[in-house]
Amino acid sequence: MKKLIGAAIATLAVISVPAQAEGETHHRDLGDIYTQCGLGGLIAPKIPWLAVTTNIVWDLGLTATSSEITSPNSCKGSSAQAAALILETYPALERELAQGSGEHIDALLSTASCGGESRGEMSSALRAELSGLANQADYSQQSRLDHAKGFYAAFARQADAHACNLS
């Protein structure tokens, strides 16, 4: 309960941060960062209060702020959202692809606006891509970042092949 109250207070504080004056050379304000970056920006891009709350509860907003600091404007566009989602949830994506479905796969497919029949086809194609990646001789020695990079490349190929919109 204390964590929920703290998250609500932090949410209100972040949302109430005023926008920066035009012409300043600072990064976007925290409200924009917490609504457009991190896990919150991925799962609730059109519901600001939920995006902010998710980012704060998930990791106190560290992922959202670090992505903005290291790569300004990296949280814009579905391509950046897909890459961040893959990096942040790679182990869960592996499990869900092996099982055939799951919320992380659904979220990933949503970043590329894959709908209807293409969702099932994309999921099957991604399962095959992941199997190919996992069967590489050096897969077990690769870092999680390397796994995520390889899977993102496969995801981008499949999104293109299935006429999804990954921009």
Score class of each variant (00 low, 15 high):
V57K: 04
E96M: 00
K76R: 14
L145F: 11
I69D: 02
Q81E: 11
A137M: 10
M122L: 13
L87E: 09
I15C: 08
K3W: 08
Q142E: 11
S16T: 09
G61T: 01
C114G: 10
T35A: 08
S118V: 10
L145I: 14
G115P: 00
L126S: 03
I43F: 11
P45Q: 06
A92E: 12
A82T: 05
L62P: 01
G150A: 08
Y139M: 13
T53S: 15
D138M: 12
L50K: 08
L93Y: 04
G61R: 04
I56F: 04
G116S: 10
G150E: 06
T70I: 09
E22W: 10
S140T: 13
P18T: 08
E121S: 08
A128R: 13
R157K: 14
S71R: 13
H162V: 04
C114N: 03
I15Y: 11
C164H: 00
E96G: 04
S124F: 08
L109K: 04
L126M: 15
L87N: 11
H27T: 08
R95F: 15
I47Y: 15
L133S: 05
N55L: 03
A161K: 14
F155C: 02
S67H: 00
A8M: 15
L42Q: 06
L87V: 10
R127P: 02
